[in-house]
Design a protein around this nucleic acid. Structure first.
Length: 722
DNA sequence: CGATGTCAGCGGTAT
DNA sequence: ACCGCTGACATCGAT
């Protein structure tokens, strides 16, 4: 949409005769009447209408039943903005509602006919429960081997609502043909791959929470499974030769599978905060927001719910996704001008033309919400610097709709506009994102910067030292160097084979010796995201012929995100990122000097320092990854690193019992020399300015109970010490 | 390189 | 059946 119209110039109500621009149809698109709210409505009709909308506080004329459509469970109100009751206007005692489509737990999908919806249809048969035996051996040997490796032990998915039947039926239509109409080799069935993949997770635990409210833990878990599955599908598609390009939307595929398995939460639509989701949380796919119940439509920008009233029906807006496509001229990050939906004409699913938007669906719901004054969740789409083709969705909390109007867009068609203003008192999110952009562009400077770059240029990106908490001027002196220092490498008994991939190691190339070492799989995606959690990653070494930017040299390529070392309130210095970090993304390695500790006493003495990394500590994957840990952690060499005299950012990373970062041993070999490194990867998506933490582990068994440090991570699952 | 176009997809709403 | 502020990739035209 063109911007020339000037979104800021909000016309005074009534300045335009809007009755002319609406497609007034008798039943569905009634023009609402707002009898007692002069000046607030841009949409009023002189005629009385059978469909009335009233201010939240009433009064309600005789014969009209007000409604209270969202029976929000009390626990979900806790996490809402302070004073929520004061903001929402639903204080009247109101009879129970008849929700039309709002409450649809998974289990009632198949009995929708009883819910006032249509009778049994083709769609309902789609959801018919089908007990299908999962044929784990139904695929080729090499695939099987890979899956054995990746999924390890077996845990059958309890849910009988399997996707296979559905997908098989659809196959003739979409899956067997590519866009160009070519036949696709049916060699690898994504659904079988997905099934065997999911079997390695304890999905049974979702039976208990699937229809209930979400919480931080289940949402972390769902998002992690989604991303692992998505990456897994990408990987399988990349390796297959017959279909160049392969499956075009692994995100949709992964999302659909999890939706059908019930690996989702917050399935009830609700106004206001969503349990388990915090303001500032980031998402990389629309599907992720569907799965956790933040925003249900997979594409549409407006989520709303409809209700049956005594006469007629009503709707309210719940959440919107502002993709920045209509980037408005509003400088204030707490204000959003949002364009209505519709006005696109399709023929055979193809966009052909635009026309006037109509006051229906989401537009009508937004209009209703303007008058109801209910909270609307806002998700801001922002550009992903790391992936130019991708987008990041930032949950920016609750807004209220302040004004609405219509304006002439391109080709003179009418477009609805809504002005939303952020509810005050919520933590910063989008405004913080904007500030960070300004710091990076040098427009404004970060408050409290002690050193703009504590690496003195040793890294390819600066790492700031910041303190906006107290007077501490910086950590004790140390030398910054970006990688691990070996006095002498470990000795491998057999000489290691180097790879010959001059153009860089490519997925599916089974001749590549480095891929062979990784079990036939390239451990990273094209975007440098770790595919799967494994005990040991084999990266290319110095004698490999591939270039430094080879995909299999992820941990050697230096920092990818803009980090800062900052003063925490009570835990000394910590690390956080200005950039959003994707799940599985490489963050940095643990630099320092590899030290020789021949005796336990020596190790104990070294341990007195805060800057010891002991890779022989149990590297138990955090509970969110449980089920996906295949082998017990296996370090090929006992590696102890001291970062006391020197090291990199990683030496400032604090411990947490619910970490967002985990470490991963990475081996780089060269003939008979082996270099073991410690690489840090993101467990889930990490929003900007969230502290990066990893689990320091429990130490060796012999030392349990000794000299433990008190843990201040504040997590609900805190062990109390580490 | 950015902007625009193409197209298969999905969950959801409505018929 | 219809709809949409997807998302990955192709293509085009301006630097």
């Amino acid at each position: 949409m063109e911007q020339g119209v000037g979104s800021e110039s909000i016309p005074t109500p009534g300045s335009m005769d809007k009755s002319k621009i609406f497609d007034i149809r008798p039943l569905r698109c009634l023009v609402p009447t707002f009898p007692s709210s002069p000046g607030t409505s841009a949409f009023s009709s002189p005629q009385p209408s059978p469909f009335m909308c009233f201010p939240p506080t009433g009064p309600f004329p005789p014969g009209v039943s007000p409604f209270y459509p969202f029976l929000v469970p009390t626990e979900s109100l806790r996490s809402a903005v302070p004073n929520q009751a004061g903001h929402s206007g639903f204080n009247n005692a109101i009879p129970s509602p008849v929700p039309l489509t709002s409450f649809r737990p998974t289990s009632t999908k198949k009995s929708r006919a009883a819910n006032g919806s249509t009778g049994p249809s083709r769609k309902s048969s789609r959801y018919r429960t089908a007990a299908i035996h999962l044929d784990v051996d139904g695929y080729s040997d090499s695939q099987h081997q890979t899956d054995q490796y990746l999924s390890g032990f077996s845990m059958h998915v309890a849910d009988a609502e399997d996707t296979s039947s559905k997908v098989r039926r659809r196959k003739g239509k979409s899956e067997m043909r590519t866009r160009s109409g070519r036949e696709v080799s049916p060699g690898v069935d994504i659904d079988l791959v997905a099934n065997s993949f999911l079997e390695s997770f304890n999905l049974a635990e979702f039976d208990s929470v699937r229809q209930a409210d979400g919480d931080t833990q289940s949402i972390r878990y769902i998002l992690m499974i989604f991303d692992l599955l998505r990456r897994r599908i990408t990987q399988v598609e990349e390796g297959r030769e017959a279909a160049p390009g392969g499956l075009r939307r692994p995100d949709l595929k992964a999302g659909a599978i999890l939706m059908n398995k019930g690996v989702r939460t917050n399935t009830k639509k609700r106004i206001g905060a969503v349990p388990g989701i915090e303001i500032g949380d980031i998402f990389f796919f629309r599907m992720e927001m569907c799965l956790v119940g933040l925003h249900a439509p997979s594409m549409a920008g407006i989520d709303f719910m409809s209700f049956k009233l005594v006469q007629g029906e009503d709707s309210l807006a719940i959440s919107i996704v502002s993709s920045g496509g209509y980037e408005d001229n509003v400088d204030d990050g707490d204000v959003l001008i949002y364009s209505g939906q519709g006005g696109n004409i399709y023929r055979k699913d193809k966009f052909v033309d635009i026309t006037d938007q109509k006051l229906e669906r989401g537009n009508l719901a937004l209009e209703k919400s303007l008058h109801r004054g209910n909270h609307v969740r806002v998700i801001r789409g922002v550009k992903d610097v790391a992936n130019p083709t991708g987008k990041i969705y930032l949950y920016d909390g609750l807004y209220k709709i302040q004004h609405s109007w219509a304006e002439k867009g391109r080709s003179g068609v009418n477009v609805f506009k809504y002005k939303l203003v952020r509810v005050p008192g919520q933590p910063e999110a989008f405004t913080m994102w904007k500030s960070i952009q300004q710091w990076k562009e040098g427009i404004t400077s970060r408050v409290g910067v002690i050193l703009p770059d504590l690496t003195s240029g040793a890294e390819n990106l600066p790492v700031s030292l910041v303190n906006d908490v107290d007077d501490e001027k910086g950590p004790a002196y140390f030398t910054y160097f970006p990688t691990l220092k070996y006095r002498k490498p470990f000795h491998s008994p057999q000489p290691s084979r180097s790879c010959m991939c001059r153009g860089g190691c490519q997925p599916g190339d089974l001749n590549c010796s480095c891929i062979q070492k990784n079990g036939g799989v390239l451990p990273y995606t094209a975007l440098g995201v770790l595919l799967i959690y494994k005990a040991l990653i084999h990266e290319c070494g110095s004698s490999c012929l591939c270039p430094p930017n080879c995909r299999n040299r992820m941990s050697q390529a230096g920092l990818k995100v803009r980090l800062e070392v900052f003063r925490t309130k009570d835990r000394g210095w910590g690390v956080r990122s200005w950039d959003p970090i994707r799940a599985g993304a490489f963050i940095c390695e643990y630099a320092g000097e590899v030290i020789d500790v021949s005796t336990e006493e020596e190790l104990e003495r070294e341990r007195e320092d805060h800057y010891i990394f002991d890779a022989t500590c149990t590297n138990e994957p955090s509970d969110v990854m449980a089920g996906n840990s295949i082998e017990s952690p296996k370090i090929p060499f006992p590696l102890v690193v001291s970062a006391k005299k020197g090291g990199n950012v990683a030496r400032f990373m604090n411990h947490s019992c619910t970490p967002n970062v985990y470490w991963q041993p990475v081996l780089r070999e060269c003939n008979n020399e082996a270099y073991l490194h410690i690489a840090f990867f993101a467990i889930g998506h990490i929003p900007p300015m969230k502290e990066l933490t990893y689990d320091y582990g429990t130490g060796q068994s012999g030392q349990a109970g000794q000299r433990k440090k008190k843990c201040l991570c504040g997590s609900l699952k805190c062990r109390g010490h580490f």
